[in-house]
Every structure is written in C-alpha cells, then in structure tokens.
Amino acid sequence: MCSHCSCGVAEVPRELPQEVSSASPPAPAPLPRTLAVTTSLLQRNDELAAVNRQRFAAAGVRVVNLLSSPGSGKTALLEQLAGRLQRRGDVAMAVVVGDLATDNDARRLAATGTPAVQITTGQACHLEAAMVQRAVDELEARGQPLSELALLVIENVGNLVCPAAYDLGEGLRLVLLSVTEGEDKPLKYPAMFHSADVVLIAKSDLAEVVGFDRAAARAAVARVAPHARLLEVSARSGDGMEALLELLL
C-alpha cells in the first residue's frame, strides 16, 4: 500500500532484489572497423626457420635443402654421396627425408649407414620448418648430435611448386632437374628455380638415350636462375659427384 495516500498501489522498495544470473547482458553491437595488419602468412614458418638456422650455425653443420620433382633421383644421389663420404671417412652426413607416406627412402639411406629420419607428411606436399625441427630432435634423441655432423641434407617432398615458399633454415638450396624431365622444367616452375643456389642436372648418364638438349637446359636455367651454380651429375656413373662434394663441403 502506498504510504503517501493509502491508494492501494504497492510502494516500490528502495532496494530491489537483484536478479542473479551468470549470463552477461548482451553486449552492444560493436561498430565495424578495419585493422591494418600486414603480416606474412609464412611468419610462423619463417620464425621457426630462423630458430633452425641458429641451431645449425651453433652446431657448425652445413644444411642443404634438396628439392626436385618426384622420381628425379634425389635418394639415389644421396646414396651415392653417402658411399663416397664413408670411403673418405672424415665427413659425417645425416639425412632428413620427407614423403607423404612410407619410410622407404629413410630405409634406403639407413642401409648405406647414414643416419636418416623419415618425415611422413600425410597430405602435406612440402616440408615446413617445424617438421624439420622435430626430425632433428629425433636424430639427436637417437644419439646423433648435430655438432658431430658436417652435412645434413633435407630431402624435401618431391614437388616443384609448394616447397619453394617454405624456408627450413637451410644454408644452401639445391634444386635437381633430371635429364628425363625435359629441358624446359626451369621455365615451367620459375619460382622454384629462382630460389636455387645450386641447380643439378641429374641422370646425366641417360642424356644421350633420351635426346637431352644440354644447351637448351642450360639456357633455361640461366633465364630463371642466373645466379645459381650449375652442375651435371650421375649417381649411376659417379660423374660430377666429386665436384658436387667439393661444393657441399
């Protein structure tokens, strides 16, 4: 009842009981606005690549990112390289190898006595710096310290497109082109060849058989990778392997 005139209208108490609820009241709709950000999509990878690069430098190991299309002879080249290094006896090499599936390549390399860690990427068509970091951790966990290696080769997933964008922390990027692939591969995949420090023309022992045009291939490499060192090698005959070793060590 109203205390002023007794009119029957209930007086509103000074203190109202408060509704207890865990739900917060609906926020007012924020105003649309634009944020300028400018961040590389590869920022996280590039940061981890820098961490890898520091780790490799601290250990004093030369790290090579080996890139090519599938079936162009990366693993055969490394088997040949491993054999030569073992005969010399003074240079220790290990390999990290990436494929979508199977550990076939790591097993081939391990059979030569080379410490090898397989990265199976599942659906990923390239290696990323984080995968290399984990693989190197595994190599060390298996009792192969980085600091005892002279050379670490990262055999990337066979692909001439995607791996080009991913820095792994390597010191040298080696792109391999086999004579069976056609002389114009560098022109078809300029981004990959543009990033190469060294271009290898592999399977040179088959050059005559497949009618490989050396001059055309060299001209194609010179157009997209004028800065790159160019070497011809054959893992089968061993031609050019000593020159490659000189360049890597």
Partner: peptide, 17 residues
C-alpha cells in the same frame, strides 16, 4: 635475380565488428 615484388603472401587488413 633481383625480384622487387611478386612473392607476397600477406594478410594486409581485417574488417571486424
């Protein structure tokens, strides 16, 4: 070899509300 631009993969802005 000197590429001034052409390799960008960048987020430049976001419109948010």
């Amino acid at each position: 070899r000197e590429l001034l631009q052409g390799r960008e993969l960048q987020l430049t802005s976001l419109e948010i509300a």
